[in-house]
Design a binder for these strands. Sequence first.
DNA 1: GGTCATTTTGTTACACTATAACATGACGTG
DNA 2: CACGTCATGTTATAGTGTAACAAAATGACC
Lengths: 172, 172
Amino acid sequence: MTKSSRAEPKSEAAFPRRGHDHHRCVADALSQAERLCAQRGARLTEIRKQVLELVWESHAPIGAYQILEKLAESGKRPAPIAVYRALDFLMEQGLVHRLASRNAFLGCGHPDTNHQAQFLICDSCGSVAELADTRIVDAIADRAGRSGFAVAGHVVEIQGTCPDCRKAAHAG
Amino acid sequence: MTKSSRAEPKSEAAFPRRGHDHHRCVADALSQAERLCAQRGARLTEIRKQVLELVWESHAPIGAYQILEKLAESGKRPAPIAVYRALDFLMEQGLVHRLASRNAFLGCGHPDTNHQAQFLICDSCGSVAELADTRIVDAIADRAGRSGFAVAGHVVEIQGTCPDCRKAAHAG
DNA sequence: GGTCATTTTGTTACACTATAACATGACGTG
DNA sequence: CACGTCATGTTATAGTGTAACAAAATGACC
């Protein structure tokens, strides 16, 4: 688990700030994906890149068939399975996560490090914060260990209200 | 959070023992459901009871359409929505849980207490252990709090290999 | 360049999961 | 027994995901 070099801020920045330059996020994510795939000898083909881009362009997690619709808008309408194949590849490469509780996908914020992520999902605006929380992972590992259970992976998706929506609710 | 009166064993019994009297489990779950619904003024109608029984009879989590098939075997084939309605009721009453990562349902082991459960799911045999682990819940609450996120609920589903299947793998 | 194995994509069809909308029936209360 | 409410039936459809096989692209090697 390599840690980012910068220190954690007091109020941990889990959610992206509203009004940030999201085009930059998308561009960064794509170039990082190109780099990682090149390093690994994995082929980031056209449709895979397009799907990754569409996943990132969406602020909220996006469904496979929504991706399909967006592809159709740009001229081609692949079969559903083409989208799922691309998503499978992207998930194998750790570039995309799937939210089991939503049947939806979102770009991974740190695809360079191998990780088990957890998610905070806002019921109000649909935005998602990706976590890599040691205490949660440790608590899971500990409890599983005490039950003699060998952990292979986990789904941790926390529903609730994000800070911005809480403020909005109080103001309203 | 009322706790069971018996103490926790050294190796915490999360998974049901193989070869236990499962008919007894089913019967107990049904009578407890009857009692709870009567207390609450909720109507445990025939189809709801049947669905609950089928969920409990299955050792592993069971899909809605599998329930439908089993109902069909006993003479009637309701529309899918009838099964989903029954499951919705049972979930509202805390008698049944849904596993988001499997699109499947299982009987709740302690429907009398209001709780957020976590699950250990064996990839090998499909058996599931239901947890109510304080440390996991605390870690989630803590992390969410630091992000300014108000938790409404969570999905915690841990995949891996259960103790019995680990032993079997080592033996084979 | 040509051949081959491998990977990726296309095509078609289908399986599985879940809900909408409206009609009918059961149930308890006054 | 009339009424409102809750539960179920009926029909149709939306949404999510995969199987199976054919065709095409790619890269390594001769």
